[in-house]
């Protein structure tokens, strides 16, 4: 679909017998615009209308309260830890899976996709079962005065879990498609492993990598269910921005809730714009969870 890669058999070029009658075409276009308008554009417009409903100063006031700012900070910290860790993992997994043959590759790919199949609530629950007071490591942690659940480390862990597959599943097909001839040539010509990766592999995969990071970051910053379970929602301490939106909303501070939500909506818009730009370089890859395996078999 993305730009130049798409084949050019559109209606404009196709003969009349290879497309639907004009009234059908316009009917379908109207249906599409109506559906997308109702489900995508109206909600997006509503976020900003509600946020700015009481004027600009009320808006800036709502997003500069200490609680909101600390929620923004925690969201940045969680994503700032989760995205780089999942990026390193994605590159390592890509190298091992795309450049080498070994038995059980498809099993490994399915396991990497696993977090997509897990409900966000369950993603939070498993860390409570591990590190909560009644959890496997709970007594040991309590003895040593370490808090993970209802504290920042738990939020970071849950964030890592839900954004785990994004970089890997973007980078594996790209590295696979690249093959390994270029790296082998570099090695034969005397480059060491690191040089080969930095000078040969990295330039080839950088757009795919960026694409994965974008999706990973959007999920990490926006996660709600998993983080909600492990957070304990202590204001100014364990409150991420999506959780802060919920708290304000449940306290009937609707304008403040939508003001905080508008920051996340802006993040979504920026993500979509960058994604569209990156897609021009990589061609569209499938973004659906649970579909990585087929690209390799």
């Amino acid at each position: 679909m993305a730009g130049s890669s798409s084949r050019n058999h559109r209606t404009s070029g196709a003969a009349a017998h290879l497309t639907e009658p004009r009234w059908v075409r316009w009917g379908l276009i109207a249906l599409t615009l109506g559906f997308l308008g109702l489900f995508l554009i109206v909600p997006l417009a509503a976020v900003f209308t509600e946020a700015l409903g009481r004027g600009w100063s009320a808006y800036t006031g709502a997003i500069s309260t200490p609680d909101t700012l600390s929620a923004v900070r925690l969201t940045l910290v969680a994503a700032g830890v989760a995205v780089p860790l999942n990026l390193v993992f994605g590159v390592a997994a890509g190298w091992a899976i795309a450049k080498f043959q070994f038995p059980g590759k498809n099993v490994l790919l399915t396991l990497i996709d696993l977090p997509f199949a897990v409900s966000p609530v369950i993603a939070g629950l498993i860390f409570v079962l591990l590190f909560g007071r009644q959890g496997w490591f709970g007594p040991w942690l309590a003895e040593h005065g370490i808090r993970i659940v209802f504290s920042v480390p738990g939020i970071i862990l849950a964030t890592i879990f839900v954004s785990f597959p994004f970089v890997a599943r973007e980078i594996i097909p790209v590295m696979q498609a690249m093959g390994r001839d270029e790296e082998e040539a570099a090695r034969v010509l005397g480059a060491n492993g690191l040089q080969t990766f930095l000078r040969v592999t990295l330039p080839n995969i950088k757009w795919g990598l960026l694409y994965g990071v974008l999706l990973c970051n959007a999920r990490a910053m926006g996660e709600f269910g998993a983080v909600s379970v492990v957070s304990g929602k202590i204001r100014g301490e364990t409150n991420t921005l999506p959780l802060h939106v919920e708290i304000l909303y449940n306290e009937y501070q609707f304008q403040a809730a939508f003001a905080a939500a508008s920051l996340l909506a802006l993040l979504a818009i920026v993500t979509l714009v960058l994604k569209t730009i990156v897609e021009r370089h990589v061609g569209r890859t499938t973004v659906q969870p649970g579909t990585a395996t087929d690209t390799l078999s």
């Binding site: 909600p43 509503a46 910053m221 996340l264 979504a268």
Partner: peptide, 23 residues
């Protein structure tokens, strides 16, 4: 419109939740 299709992936679910409820 094509770029907007991915909005539900990019928009945090809590934002979608309160917005749809309000609408």
């Amino acid at each position: 419109f094509d770029a907007l299709i991915d909005l539900p992936f990019a928009l945090p679910t809590a934002v979608a939740g309160i917005t749809l409820t309000t609408l």
